[in-house]
């Protein structure tokens, strides 16, 4: 399998690797995928009082495309409002990274991870959840 330069760049220099305190009220955590399927992504967002995503961190168990997809979205969500972040589509991720068809599911998982993190944040903070769907 050949990877695009962008995938290789994110794989070799992943952005925003790490974890926030899950219990922190301003943190939303999304954990998607399953080890049995070969991909697990943990994506965390730190949201400001104004509802802006100030920071994001990830950890991913998966192939290079999965690592790159999650690394990329941590960059993309920073500075966005929750609603803006929720609008990130897997197709944009796949296109940006030039993912081959067999790797599209990695971008789907990354989109799911953002949504799950937003939902978790909203749930914790008693906000309505429909925007995350």
């Amino acid at each position: 399998m050949s990877y695009s330069e962008k995938v290789i760049d994110h794989y070799e220099h992943p952005r925003n690797v790490g974890s926030f305190q899950k219990s922190d009220g301003g943190v939303g955590t999304g954990l998607v995928g399953a080890p049995a399927c070969g991909d697990v992504m943990k994506l965390q967002i730190k949201v400001s009082a104004e509802g802006i995503i100030e920071d994001a961190k990830f950890k991913t168990f998966g192939c290079g495309s999965a690592i790159a997809s999650s690394s990329l979205v941590t960059e993309w969500v920073k500075g966005k409002t929750l609603d803006e972040a929720a609008k990130i589509k897997n197709t944009e991720i796949a296109q940006h990274l030039a993912l081959p068809p067999v790797k599209i599911h990695c971008s789907v998982l990354a989109e799911d991870a953002i949504k799950a993190a937003i939902a978790d944040y909203k749930k914790k903070n008693g906000l309505e959840e429909d925007a995350a769907q």
Partner: peptide, 16 residues
């Protein structure tokens, strides 16, 4: 492993 959420859980003693 530093990148892996599963490794992190394992370190924290969580049974995956």
């Amino acid at each position: 492993r530093e990148l892996s959420p599963l490794w992190e859980m394992h370190q924290e003693g969580i049974d995956i």
